[in-house]
Every structure is written in C-alpha cells, then in structure tokens.
Design a protein around this nucleic acid. Structure first.
Lengths: 126, 126
DNA sequence: CTTGACCTTGACGTTGGTGTCAAGGTCTAT
DNA sequence: ATAGACCTTGACACCAACGTCAAGGTCAAG
C-alpha cells in the first residue's frame, strides 16, 4: 500500500509517516516511480508508535518498541529495552505528578497570601 | 539603576528583562545615552513576575499581577483579574494532575499487557 | 588613549511533532 | 489531452522564554 492508504488506516497524516521515516522509526521500499510502498507489518509499527505517543512517549522513546516488533516479537513492549523505557516513563510521570502537587500547593499558598479571604469567595467579589 | 543591576538584584538576565519589556510587562525610562533606567518599583514588578513564573505561570498570566501592582495595590494578586488567573491556574493544574494520573494508569496497563510479569521483576530479567 | 565593563538593537537557535505551503512528477479515467 | 487524485522533496511556521552571538556605542579608571 502507498503512504495515503497507510495514513488513513493508521489514523495519521502522510506527513507524520514521512517524519517517522526521517527519524528512522519506519522504512519503506520504493516502487519504480519513487512512491513509498508499505506492507501490513508497517501498519503494526505505526499503530505501536501511535499508542505510545498517545500516552506521552516521544518518538525516541518509541524506538526500542519498534525494534522489538521488527525483531519478530509479537509485542513491542516485551524486549528488555522497552521494559526499561516503561519503567523510566512511569518514574517520569510520577515525578511530574509530584511536581504538580507541590506546585498546586505553592500556587494556593501564594493565592491566600496575596489575597486572604479571596479563596473562599466567588470570583468578582473581593 | 541600569539593567545589569536590576538583573543581578532580581536574579534574572538582562536579556529576560528586555524580553519582559518587549512583552509589555515592564517599562523603563531612558537616560540620555539610551540606557534603560529603572527604579525600586521595577524590582518589585520583576520579583512578582519571577515568583509567578516559578510556579508555572506564563508571562501572559503575569500581566494582571503587574497591572495590579502598578495600580498601587500592595499585592499583585489582590485584584479581581489576578484572582481569576489564580483560579484558572489552579483548575489547569488540577486538570494536568488528573491527566497524568490517567496516563500513568494507561502506561501501567500497556506495560502489563505487553509484558505480563515484567512489572514485578527487576530490569534486565524479562 | 586604551582597556574593559557596561549598554544598545537585531536576529537566529532551542524543543517535538507535525501543518502547510511550494513546485513539481505520476497515473487513472474520461 | 486534461482533470484531479495521488505522490515526491524541501522548507518555513508553530509555541515560550529566553541564550547567545554579532556589531557597535558609552563611560570611568588607569
């Protein structure tokens, strides 16, 4: 299939697919007229990439998963490198959550300090 | 005082101060040689901006706070517009926290689906 | 007079994952 | 032959808050 069909089937833009290729995540053989030609396995790769991006992974994070699938594993996340990325990502998310909780408290503190009493009243009164 | 001194006292770079000016947050009169000249009130404004940026506000968010101080209020957060920003920011942070919690769960779910058993073992085993 | 610390404006680089032209080649159907 | 649906590469735009040069003006001290 050509890039347009893969894009439709995977729910991405052709532009995105070219970008993934440029980043070395996917590849395509070329037909005689220069068009990219993809197989079913590529749809699989792109789907994996998409589901990872959807949960906040970067394309760089997705690399080991793609490699894992290409290596013949039936799951992109079953290789040691992917597992390492999973663990790192979970740690990163936990970190961000902690940071946000702290920040929320800091903002609330600044708020009450700057305008004691404002916090409990509705907007517009003060 | 000139830009360098204000920068040192506020703990920012001269570049940042010029940027704040370009964004309309602060202003400076010019001495005869073209140098920016600041007063103590400006240090106050910059400090306000900094403490807001430090907790994740954008420069745009900081605008009402600066305006509030310029209007003579002793706290940048005591004006209705600032209060509205505080509320909006708290809501945004809460949203981000919720999003991250959901994402954490999704990643963990993908992880266990992709590699059941990996989660509990140490890295490198599989 | 010259060093050197300060100041000026202007403009490009950073980060990620595309969107969106531009300018053109290819192929199918009518 | 021509419309139009597809493809190609290349390159700028985006968002935020600056960092970092470039190329030059200003001023006090030695």
């Amino acid at each position: 299939m050509r890039i347009g069909e893969l894009a439709r089937r995977a729910g991405v833009s052709p532009r995105a697919l070219r970008y993934y290729e440029q980043q070395g995540l996917i590849s395509a053989r070329r037909s005689s007229n220069g068009y990219r030609e993809y197989g079913e396995a590529d749809l699989r790769l792109v789907s994996e990439i998409r589901s990872l991006l959807a949960v906040g992974f970067t394309l760089d994070d997705a690399r080991p998963f793609v490699a894992c699938l290409r290596a013949g594993h039936d799951s992109g996340g079953s290789c040691p490198e992917s597992v390492a990325v999973y663990r790192r990502k979970l740690a990163e998310i936990d970190d961000e959550i902690r940071t946000l909780l702290i920040r929320r408290a800091e903002v609330a503190a600044q708020f009450t300090t700057a305008c004691p009493g404002c916090v409990l009243r509705k907007a517009g009164e003060s």
